[in-house]
């Protein structure tokens, strides 16, 4: 059969469909498996200490399912999942440190140090939920795929009324393909596929949220290896 552009497109779409469903299935599997199994275990356990552990795990995994739904809807730009409310002053150094603490408290996190250069008290004028989610996704990406230390530099650009957050994450040199597609939904580099779970949505979500706040998010390969992520948001 002659190879046509239409056939190429159909094959590509099928490949993407299969890949997306596979990734979603994988990410849903752990919390769904855990919730189902733990609910059964709860019904057979009489020990109050064990029951307490089970209930805490059930709560963690239902919250995880909730976040997955939010992330999926945000990644495909479903407006119902985008943050609502009025923009406010958001102190970026403080939010960076809070997001970092939350990531560090998650189980089995690699040991990565953070340095924040705040440049005074630079603040964005945006929806606080969106800024927290943007920084959380970018920092989580740095912790998962980079090495120590992660350096966050916050700078104010008075001439354009914007504030910029550069997240410098050293690591292995990134293939050109990763840099080209990393801001697209469900893209997972070769290394991510074999070593880390995830939807391949983190940077996509951060980009969409930054754009929703009238800002931008860009990435580039870092000299010496790793990733530099630059977020620009309206300033206070």
């Amino acid at each position: 059969m002659p190879h046509t552009d239409e056939a190429d497109t159909a094959d590509d779409l099928e490949w993407i469909r299969s890949r997306v469903l596979n990734v979603i299935g994988h990410e849903l599997r752990t919390p769904v498996t855990t919730v189902r199994g733990l609910a059964d275990a709860l019904s057979t356990s009489a020990d109050p200490a064990v029951r307490g552990k089970i209930i805490a795990a059930l709560q963690r995994n239902t919250r995880r399912l909730e976040r997955l739904v939010d992330d999926l809807l945000t990644a495909v730009e479903v407006r119902t999942a985008l943050p609502v409310g009025d923009p406010k002053r958001v102190p970026l150094g403080q939010v960076t440190r809070e997001a970092w603490e939350e990531i560090r408290q998650a189980p089995n996190q690699p040991v990565v140090d953070l340095a924040v250069d705040e440049n005074g008290t630079a603040a964005a004028f945006a929806r606080p939920t969106a800024v927290r989610r943007i920084l959380s996704q970018v920092l989580r990406n740095a912790v998962t795929y980079g090495t120590s230390p992660v350096t966050v530099t916050i700078s104010h650009h008075g001439d354009t009324d914007t504030v910029r957050v550069d997240v410098d994450s050293p690591g292995d040199p990134l293939p050109a393909e990763d840099l080209r597609y990393a801001l697209q939904p469900f893209w997972r580099g070769e290394r991510a596929v074999t070593t880390a779970p995830g939807l391949g949505l983190g940077l996509t979500i951060a980009r969409i949220l930054a754009e929703h706040e009238r800002g931008t998010l860009r990435i580039e390969g870092r000299e010496g290896g790793g990733l530099l992520t630059s977020i620009e948001l309206p300033s206070e």
Binding site: T30, L38, A41, K53, A57, R60
Partner: peptide
């Protein structure tokens, strides 16, 4: 498993 809750579940089960 890198998911502590999967370890907890399998241990209980």
């Amino acid at each position: 498993d890198d998911e502590p809750d999967i370890c907890l579940l399998l241990k209980l089960q």
